[in-house]
Amino acid sequence: MNQKRKLYITTMRGLMVISTALTAALVLFLLGYVLIKGIPNITWELLSTKPSYLTERIGILPDILNTVYIVLATLLVVLPLGVGAAIYLTEYARNKRLVSIIEYASETLSGIPSIIYGLVGMLVFAGNFGTSLLAGALTLVIMNLPTVMRTTQESLKTVPQSYREGAFGLGAGKWRVIRTVVLPGCVDGVITGCILSIGRILGESAALLFTAGFAHSLNSIFTAFTRPGATLSVALYVYAKEDGEFGVAFAIAAILMVLTLLINLAASLVGKYFAKRRNA
């Protein structure tokens, strides 16, 4: 082997290993740095109170609750819409042109940056309902629609055609086939879609800043949706950038980091579980 070839091989191998090591080191550093800086700042008081000007203490309970509310509301709306759209695409649509238009629209939605969702959500939803958790949740519904559609569609494709034909052969109508054969088959897609959406909602800030606002007041689930409120990510931004409260910001960052880890773990476990069940 000549010198030049040897050099090429060594260089490329070296570069590959260095790049991979760099990527891994980056993840380790981010994880370690955020957890080390954040965890000491997480106290029971921080988690269980709201910010008070009297005691000059910061609590993130309102932000935690707002995050939970907004996740629930978004999922409640996006799941039926996304699953329905996926069922239409795989079970009903016969017109290829229409299918490709819908799929193109869904790809376009997933490429639009969150700041643009924030602006349009501000005009459409906050304009009608005021700056509120409801406006924020509706904005997030549009953002997460393509995700739920895609995961559901993928799992629908794994339902064997013969199941449907069998049900039709027994005299079932289309709706009955969908309800009894198709829907149970897409549970894994719906669960995966849920997990991915939760991850995206937890991390979202730009789309919520102008739709759900950044108030830290404590709301019950019945009144929350008409009032503005910050989720954890938005609160992190406000505490870090506007207030310079880096301790609180890192505490929130550590919480978000742990949640992200859990979500990734859940997604891969669900994927493995259903893959095993399908092959069994």
Partner: peptide, 21 residues
């Protein structure tokens, strides 16, 4: 490493901003 990359994809952008700051 793929799990690590997935984690990188899931970290909220404000956390990147905070560490960057």
């Amino acid at each position: 490493i793929e799990a690590a990359v997935n984690l990188l994809a899931g970290i909220p952008s404000v956390v990147y901003g905070l560490v960057g700051m």
